[in-house]
Every structure is written in C-alpha cells, then in structure tokens.
Design a protein around this nucleic acid. Structure first.
Lengths: 220, 220
DNA sequence: AAGAATTTTTAGATTAATCTAAAAAAACAA
DNA sequence: TTGTTTTTTTAGATTAATCTAAAAATTCTT
C-alpha cells in the first residue's frame, strides 16, 4: 500500500524526471513537496526499501517500473478528475488544481474506470495535458514552448505547463485559451518578450516567462 | 482544521448519538472506529480541547454545536457522493460505501455546492438516507423498522439502516428494493421472523435481523 | 588540486494516531 | 454494602512524517 504522502513524492519525482530525463536531486524534490531536504532523504530511503525508487545516497533518485506505475496512476486520476470538474461541474480551468490534488488519491480502480467512461474517455485534461491510459501509457506529444517558435510562424495553443490560478486567470484575461491560433509578430532581443496576434482578433505583448509556459504545435 | 481521523470520530459520535439520543460511550465509539478504547479516550480529550465535543471523563461524550456542524457536513458529502456514484457512474447501491468513505473527506465547499447542483439537489441517497442541506439541516422522517409493523399492514420500503455489501446483495436477490410495497403476511412468534409479500409478486420469508434493517412508511 | 560553497545525509526531537498493560472508576450483584 | 465485573483512563511505547542543527559528501572555483 502506498500512502497519500508517498504518492505525492512519486508523482513529483515522475514530473521532475520527465523534465530533465535524468536523476532527480533531493533539493528539487524538497522544493516541490514543500518540505526540507532532510525529510526528503528520509522518504527516499523508505521508498527505496519499498522498491518504488532507485536511490543511492548523494546520487539522486529515479523511479522503478513499479514506482512509475503508481505515479502514472495518480496522474491519470488527477487529470480525469480535472476533466470532470470542468466538463461536468462547470469549474473554470484555474479552479480545479487543488481539488484534483485531493481527488487523485481516492483508491478504487472501478471508480477510475467508470469515471473515464462517464467522461467519454478523454485524452487530454483542461490544461492540454495528456491523460495516461489505464495501462499507464502516456502519449508522447510533439509540443513546443511558445518561447521557442520563430518570428512569423503560426501555431496552435494546445496546453500550458504552469497550472497556478494566477497564471491561468491572466491567460483568460488576454484571450489566450486552448485552441487559439497564434502568430509571432516580433521578438524583443533584450528580454525575449514577444508581440503576438491571437486568432480571436487582438495583438498582445507577452513576457518570455509567459511564453515559456504556453505549449503549442506548429501550423503548416 | 479537522483531520480525516477527527472527522471520522465526529461522524461516528453523531450516528451513535442519533440512535440513542444520549451520551455515547467510549466503547461504542471504539467498536465503530475499529480502534481500542484507550485510543478513543485520547481522541476524545483532543476533540474536547478543540471544542468539538462535550466530554467529562467516565461520563460519555456528545457533540458541541460546532462538532455537529462538522459531522453533518461529512455526512452530507458522503451521501451526495453516493448519489453521484449510483446515478451518474452506474454503480450498484452495494458498491458505493467504501468509495464514499474516502470522498466524504474532500475539502471544498465549492465542490459540494456544484456537485449538489449537478445531481439535481437530491434529498435522499441510494439507501434512502436523507441528505442534510447546505446549512446542515437534516429532515426528520417518520421511518419505522419493518420489524415493528403489525401483521396485515401494507408498507412502502424507503430505506435500509445497514449498508454492508452482503446485506444489500441479499436484498437485491430477494427483490427488496427501495420503493417496493410490502405486506406482512405472518409473524413467527418464537424467532420474530416474517412472511411478507412484495409488490413485485413473490412472497418471501425474512429473519427478524433483516426486518430490523429495512425502513418503511405505512401505506394508508 | 586545494579550499570554499553547496548539497545531502544523519542525529535527535516533535506531533498525530495508534497500541498494550496496568490502574482507576463505575456499574452490577449477591 | 461490599466484593466482583466491566468500562474507562493513564502510562509508556510505536510508527509515519516532519523538523532543526550538525556532519559528511560532492561540486565549484580559482
């Protein structure tokens, strides 16, 4: 059995691993779990004893196959519940993260299967993140950050990589919603900020920080 | 803030209080929480410090107004989630208890309000139990146990007071479902078992133990 | 490659929830 | 009403998850 707390560690190690494609540091985990490095060291030893992570002192941590299975199950539940909250209960996409953080730990395979069916087997959550299937398979998608796109290109906004309420509300306000077409008008060299036009009409100005957290695919 | 564990104690004290209309004993709580009396003593002192229960050593325990508010909120959530599981996800009534035990601790007032609306503001859960309103008001219903009804009377089955899967599956098998009309045909004096006929057609024989856990209202 | 800085681990506490065993209080019974 | 039984509480441990402070290992810098 994995506890609520253990599941959170596994989920965070999964996400950090996916970003860096290598071992995850104790400090990186401490930052995301909102705990101290000392607490993380203790937990890593424990998860290692349970064969959920590969861990050698001072060498960072990776998930074992079983650890990854648990992490993907938690992520699948989180994203399915987010779809439920937005599509069925009418929440906005900036309101669902904290509730899904709780719901992701509900333990019932039957429930997940029936929820998935009820939602029509969705492939993406309200932030554009792919939902792992029931075998824990996560589709690999060729998303790029808006910050990496060249001037003049047309792209389609398909996701965000930051889920804070503040960021999502900012996007709503500026008209940057999933499905929007974006054209890069101009790049300011000194701070990498961008002028862009959005398919809905307006041309706006966004910082590099914002552009880094918008996921897009190129339009031919 | 009340923990998962504290909420479970409050819920159980509420249920025992409602049954007996008086102070609840340490042992009674220990039985339902599946813990030892010593653990209950510790927790009662703690809940008392938090002003959630009235507790004097050796004198039993009752809920304070605030304790009752928390208990009713947990019960409201439990019953709303049960409606969701049966009405929306297609679970049978004997499968939802354990899942609802987990979902009842999800903490979000917005979520409860939106779920309630999504479900069409239901007044009863799938077992016929009334759902407290958002102010924590629980309707008082004139339910009787089937075991208290006189021979010859016609009644309507409106609830059950035992939610175990085994009991509910037995009811399904015998055709005893909510909304069924029941007529008492005969009472066996020595073991209080009953012969009844069910509106759906068949006449069956049930034990006193079963009759005690079926809630009915008299039909004029 | 040696010293400084950073990161990570260990040692030793703390808090919440639980337990067993023993003591204390209350209830029952003759 | 006094002794016995039952119930409840206290005392002292245990486990999970966390912390601070200090020690150890690694990495950076010149």
């Amino acid at each position: 059995m994995t506890s609520f707390t253990e599941e959170n560690y596994l989920k965070i190690i999964y996400k950090l691993s996916a970003e860096t494609n290598s071992e995850v540091s104790t400090n990186a985990v401490a930052e995301l779990t909102q705990t101290k490095a000392a607490s993380v060291s203790d937990m890593l030893r424990k998860l290692s004893d349970k064969q959920l992570v590969n861990y050698q002192k001072y060498q960072g941590v990776t998930l074992t196959a079983e650890g990854e299975r648990v992490a993907l199950s938690v992520i699948r539940k989180h994203r399915l519940w987010e779809v439920f909250l937005v599509a069925k209960l009418g929440f906005n996409w900036d309101e669902v993260h904290d509730i899904a953080e709780q719901l992701e730990h509900i333990d019932s395979e039957e429930l997940v299967a029936k929820l998935d069916e009820f939602l029509g087997f969705p492939k993406f959550d309200p932030h554009g993140d792919p939902i792992p299937d029931h075998n824990g398979r996560m589709p690999v998608l060729g998303y790029q950050n808006l910050s990496e796109i060249e001037v003049g290109k047309n792209v389609l906004m398909v996701g965000v990589s930051e889920h804070s309420s503040a960021f999502l509300q900012y996007l709503d306000k500026t008209g940057l919603i999933l499905g929007a077409g974006i054209t890069i008008l101009e790049l300011n060299e000194f701070d990498k900020s961008l002028s862009i036009s959005i398919s809905s009409g307006n041309a706006i100005f966004i910082s590099h920080e914002v552009a880094k957290n918008i996921l897009v695919i190129e339009q031919k």
